[in-house]
Design a binder for these strands. Sequence first.
DNA 1: CTATATCCGACTAATCCACTCGGGATTATA
DNA 2: TATAATCCCGAGTGGATTAGTCGGATATAG
Lengths: 148, 148
Amino acid sequence: MKLSARVEYGVRAMSVLALHDRSGPLSLREISRSEDISFQFLEQIFLDLRRAGLVSSVRGARGGYYLSHPPERINVGDIVRALEGPITPVNCLAHSDGKESRCHRSEACRTRHVWEKLRDRINEVLDSVSLDELIGPKPDRLVKQAGS
Amino acid sequence: MKLSARVEYGVRAMSVLALHDRSGPLSLREISRSEDISFQFLEQIFLDLRRAGLVSSVRGARGGYYLSHPPERINVGDIVRALEGPITPVNCLAHSDGKESRCHRSEACRTRHVWEKLRDRINEVLDSVSLDELIGPKPDRLVKQAGS
DNA sequence: CTATATCCGACTAATCCACTCGGGATTATA
DNA sequence: TATAATCCCGAGTGGATTAGTCGGATATAG
C-alpha cells in the first residue's frame, strides 16, 4: 500500500510550481536543486505530467514548466493518476480494455466489494486536496479557522 | 497504490475460515485447493496471521487453522496490517523506531498532511469491513434491505 | 553560435515480490 | 509404534518493478 517515489517527487515538484504560479516557467534544474530530486528522474516525471495535460512547457533557453491550470483546479489525484495510472488496489480490479473484467473465479467476488470501496475512498481523498491547499493555508483562511 | 498478493490471498483465505467458523480447524491444503492458491505460499501467509493473533492453529494430523475471534470482530484492516505491516503511503510516514520521524527536509512537510490523511482514510475503510460482512449478507439482513 | 532548456528511447542497478525448497516438530489414527 | 497429515520455519530463487542514468535530438534566448 505504497505510492511510488515518482508520485512523491511529482507532488512536491508540482507544489513548487504552484508557489511560483503566474511568474513564468520554472526550469527542472531549479526544482531539482530546491527539492533535492535527481534532475534526470524529474525529467521523466514531467514528461508524463505534460502528457497528462497538467503542466505546459516552454522549450529552449529560459524555458521550463508551468501549471496548465490554476492551482485550485489541480488536485493530488490528478498527479497520482498521471504518474501511476488508475488506482487499482488489487489486480482483479484492473480493467485495461474498458470491459468490466470479472475475475475468472466467480466466488472471488466475495472480496471484490471491499476493494472497490477502498479504491473509491482513495480517489476521493486524493481528489479532495488541490495544489492550492497543499502549499499552505492562505492568510485570510488562517485567520478564519484559527481565530482563537 | 497496490496491495500485495499476500493480502489478497490472506483475505480470501480468512473469508473461507469465516464461512466454516466453529466447525473445527480447516487445513491449509483444503483452503489452497478451494481458493486455488499455492499451498506453500499460504503457509507463509498463515504464519504471519497466527503471529498477529488472528488465527489459531492445531498441529498434527487433522489439524489446521481456525479464527481466533468471531468473524464480526476481525476486519480487513487487521489482515492487511498483519501481512504488510503498518500502512504508509509514502516512506516519510514510516516511523520504524516509534519516534515521530520528521523528514530531514523541513519543507517536505508541505505534502505530509495529505499522506497522513490518505493513510487514515485507508485504515478507516479497511477497518470498516469485518469478515462477517465479507462473506455476504445474512438472510435476514437481505430481507430487510432488499424488501421489494 | 552558444548556452540553456525540454524531449525521448534505451539502458542499468537495485529492490521487491511471489513463490519454492528442504527439512523439523507435532499429533491422530491404524 | 509406524505412518501420514499437518503446522512450523529459515533460506533461497527467478521474475517483475522501480529508481535512476545515459546519450543524444530539438528548440530558443541572447
